[in-house]
């Protein structure tokens, strides 16, 4: 199932994409960013990068899908997909974070907390986008349909993540356990929904 690793081309494309988006935001803001703006901009970057990264997961693989269809069960397939997309997005977001703090500075005080929130949020985002792509792909709609479907559903994740990461920028991070637990719960719920619902998208 890990046949995705072969496509190195997408890795290079995504790295280039990160570099250019980060650089554009750096050019747009000439002065130093205050933490609130930094935080907002960072999550917007993450959305766009993950949209770009996830768009490769179902697009243009009708033939390949037909082949996989004969090999594995849909539940196995979606779990492998979530795992792969999750790990891929984690690496990508770490790269984005490094690039972003290189250009725009790094106001994060509590790095461990920030990383934890980023990892949990990005994991959730990638599984949600995977599901949204599966739905919109079956619907025959392009990128627009995908955006319409996924944005409202992404908001809970983003708001929670932004909340935790803004705590991580203050010196004394207070009471973040509940928010991290909320993020984790969201991830678990999204994964469970994917697991339960994907088979219905699969057969055709």
């Amino acid at each position: 199932m890990r046949h995705e690793l072969r496509s190195r081309r997408s890795w290079l494309a995504i790295l280039l994409y990160i570099a250019s988006t980060v650089y554009i935001t750096y050019l747009a803001f000439q002065h130093d960013l205050d933490p609130v703006t930094w935080n907002a901009l960072f999550w917007i970057l993450i959305i766009f990068i993950s949209m770009f990264a996830a768009s490769g997961s179902f697009a243009g693989r009708e033939g390949e899908m037909l082949y996989i269809y004969t090999l594995v069960s849909p539940r196995k397939f979606i779990m492998a997909r979530l795992l792969y997309n999750g790990i891929f997005m984690l690496l990508v977001s770490i790269a984005a974070y490094i690039g972003y703090s290189f250009f725009a500075g790094n106001p994060v005080g509590n790095i461990v907390l920030f990383m934890a929130s980023m990892l949990l949020a990005v994991w959730g985002i990638s599984s949600l986008l995977t599901m949204a792509f599966a739905i919109s792909g079956k619907g025959g709609g392009g990128f627009t349909l995908m955006a319409v479907i996924s944005f409202p559903l992404l908001v809970p994740l983003l708001i929670t993540a932004q909340h935790v990461s803004s705590i991580s920028m203050q010196a004394g991070g207070d009471n973040y356990v509940g928010s991290l637990a909320a993020l984790f719960a969201l991830d678990a719920i999204i994964a469970a929904l994917c697991y339960l619902l994907f088979p219905y998208l699969w057969r055709d």
Binding site: M131, I135, P152, P156, A185, Y200, L201
Partner: peptide, 21 residues
């Protein structure tokens, strides 16, 4: 499929979000 997905996400959001510190 989307309806089930959206309903659950909506419910979770309405329940979790106001409780964040």
């Amino acid at each position: 499929v989307y309806n089930v997905f959206a309903y659950v996400m909506m419910l979770v959001f309405v329940m979790i979000y106001p409780r964040l510190s």
